[in-house]
């Protein structure tokens, strides 16, 4: 057991979709403690019915994102000492997503948009063909690599004001995914993809203000990906493909 080095005053949003309220808890402050550790401590010691979501606890699965002191974060890799303000932490569910209960959001709308943005790989070869030769330094490969490490955590989506204003907007994560596929030489779905990402709520709704980029825990740059999509779509429009 790590040594207790103080106390944290924690507020957690509790309740269903329509009866949300902030509840106060006092939690021991420990060294190297994450916000997810705090939530887990509350659930184990004070509030067994507290609902929240996590899986890997090491920043791989993308399921633990919450709003911490007003900002969306991956809680399993956010240290309490980095985010605490005057000994206090307020923990709420992610913005722009319907709450199910307490800190757990319904992410189906978020993932439906990945489908709507044609975020699924469209193969052009079979297993009988040989592997596609793609040099690591090719610009398209580099552009795909820059966006590929997304963990689907929806932090960017919660940070995006364009999503808040226009619930139809596909959002940074789905568009970033589409951009990685636009740059995948093996993929054959680009015509439909560029049509999908320029339809209602498409990439043209992005303000380029980089709320997504400044909050992405994996330091991805969805704003740049969306700018790439806009350019690629403009070229497709000139070719008469939109």
């Amino acid at each position: 057991m790590r040594e207790e080095i103080g106390k944290i005053q924690v507020q957690v949003r509790r309740g269903g979709p329509d009866d949300g309220r902030l509840v106060d808890y006092e939690v021991p402050l420990l060294a190297s403690q994450t916000v997810l550790d705090v939530v887990t401590w509350i659930q184990r010691n004070l509030e067994p019915a507290l609902s929240y979501r996590f899986a890997c606890r090491v920043g791989m699965c993308g399921s633990c994102a919450m709003t911490v002191n007003g900002r969306p974060r991956w809680t399993c890799r956010s240290h309490v000492t980095d985010v605490m303000k005057d000994g206090r932490i307020r923990i709420e569910p992610l913005r722009n997503l319907p709450v199910i209960k307490d800190l757990a959001c319904d992410l189906s709308g978020f993932f439906d948009k990945w489908q709507r943005a044609e975020g699924a790989f469209v193969p052009t070869q079979t297993r009988k063909d040989s592997l596609a030769p793609i040099a690591p330094q090719e610009p398209a490969r580099q552009a795909a690599s820059a966006g590929i490490e997304c963990i689907n955590c929806a932090v960017c989506y919660a940070a995006c004001d364009a999503v808040e204003q226009n619930p139809e907007y596909l959002g940074p994560a789905a568009l970033n995914r589409a951009w990685t596929l636009v740059n995948d030489a093996r993929d054959g779905g680009n015509r439909a993809r560029l049509q999908a990402v320029t339809g209602p709520g498409g990439c043209q709704s992005c303000h380029s203000q980089q709320g997504c980029t400044s909050h992405c825990p994996n330091a991805l740059n969805p704003t740049r990906s969306i700018a790439g999509l806009k350019q690629a779509a403009a070229r497709a429009w000139l070719r008469g493909e939109l």
Partner: peptide
């Protein structure tokens, strides 16, 4: 609310 062609026209 913004059609892609309107977006292009604005650019």
């Amino acid at each position: 609310m913004l059609d892609f062609r309107l977006y292009l026209a604005q650019r």
